[in-house]
């Protein structure tokens, strides 16, 4: 564990808490992409299958369960609980059908694992989750773009999620310098870089709006 990784994980936790706060305080899921949440749930469930095979630490296991549980809860809220359910507008969240994200990532993961000779289902699903995570935020960014004016807490949610990814890049740099037996995984790096790059545009407008103290409005 290093400071970047821990700060990244905490930023991820804060983003989830902010999202829950956002849903509860406004009593609606307008501006929130259910698709992004569902993609994240697929990511967590496929990546954290090692909960059953490998024990890393109590911290690691606890966080994995917390991510799966909180994301499941958020999806349940938006899909089945009032008032979120009736206010949720699926037509605003139409970008990127789940299967068009899942299928290419599955194909790519299968290919990458064949090349690497990692043929266990757990390895293939883990690689799949690395690719899918990079795409998971796309529907949310698209929803932000549709409404243009971003509600405060929703903006913070995306900011903390992006900060988490940025901090993970610093974590990899740190680990490759200071851990003697650290093994590079280029698929993780490339996928992580792509994922972080998706946030850059949002970050720019977020920081500018905070600096000038105005509302966060995205350009058309």
């Amino acid at each position: 564990m290093n400071i970047f990784r821990f700060a990244g994980d905490m930023s991820h936790v804060v983003s989830i808490l902010v999202l829950l706060l956002r849903l509860r305080s406004s009593k609606s899921a307008v501006g929130i992409s259910l698709k992004t949440q569902e993609l994240f749930l697929i990511v967590f469930v496929t990546r954290y299958l090692d909960l059953f095979t490998t024990f890393y630490s109590l911290y690691n296991s606890f966080m994995k369960v917390a991510y799966i549980a909180s994301t499941t809860y958020i999806i349940w809220m938006i899909r089945f609980q009032e008032p979120y359910k009736s206010k949720y507008d699926a037509s605003q969240d139409s970008f990127l059908h789940i299967k068009f994200a899942v299928a290419p990532c599955a194909g790519l993961a299968l290919f990458a694992c064949l090349v690497k000779g990692e043929l266990s289902p757990i390895d293939i699903l883990w690689t799949f989750s690395i690719f899918l995570e990079a795409l998971a935020i796309v529907p949310q960014l698209f929803v932000l773009q549709r409404y243009r004016e971003v509600e405060n807490l929703t903006g913070h949610y995306v900011f903390f999620l992006g900060a988490y990814r940025g901090l993970y890049i610093l974590n990899w740099v740190y680990r490759s310098y200071y851990e003697q037996f650290y093994r590079h995984n280029w698929l993780v790096y490339v996928s992580g870089a792509v994922q972080t790059a998706l946030y850059v545009d949002f970050f720019y407008y977020y920081v500018v709006s905070k600096y000038y103290g105005g509302k966060l409005t995205l350009p058309t």
Binding site: R5, Y56, N60, Y67, W126, W172, R183, N185
Partner: peptide
Amino acid sequence: SRKGASKDEL
């Protein structure tokens, strides 16, 4: 171990 270090991350 054969596994990359990033597998111990979240």
